[in-house]
């Protein structure tokens, strides 16, 4: 009966280690492509620019055009209809002045992301220096 050749065990073991290392590296590379895809997709999906645009437009208008009820209604119609038709986003906002305060309520929903905002300005407290 032939004797089992037990030489070269060290080399065989190194062969195993090397092949396992290559396999693990392949896994890491495969993962990285997926990570880039999912992160950029989720960033693209989030309507960051739409919300910032809406907010900046409303904050720009609140002291000038929103003071006039007719202009306010017109501009409100414009923004709501354009957003619904071109971006598929449901927007509602209202600007009202209880007492001395000014309140701006913003609601945004495009089916994936919902955003609500309430902004209050109190001139009385601002003039007293209370924040």
């Amino acid at each position: 009966m032939a004797k089992l050749n037990d030489e070269g065990q060290w080399i065989i073991m190194m062969g195993f280690i090397v092949s396992i290392a290559i396999f693990i590296m392949a896994l890491i590379v495969a993962e990285s492509a997926l990570v880039g895809k999912t992160t950029s997709e989720s960033v693209l999906e989030f309507p960051k620019n739409d919300i910032q645009d809406l907010r900046s437009e409303l904050f720009d208008r609140r002291w000038s055009d929103f003071q006039d009820p007719a202009a306010y209604g017109n501009l409100q119609n414009d923004i709501i209809n354009l957003s619904l038709n071109r971006k598929g986003a449901v927007i509602s906002f209202s600007y009202y002045q209880p007492g001395d305060d000014s309140v701006l309520l913003i609601h945004y929903n495009n089916g994936l992301t919902e955003y609500n905002d309430m902004y209050t300005e109190r001139p009385s407290e601002l003039s007293r220096g209370v924040f």
Partner: peptide, 16 residues
């Protein structure tokens, strides 16, 4: 290099 691998089918990063 694994953090910046862009496969040919993957153009989302450029879109972003």
């Amino acid at each position: 290099s694994s953090s910046t691998v862009i496969t040919p089918q993957e153009t989302h990063i450029a879109d972003l």
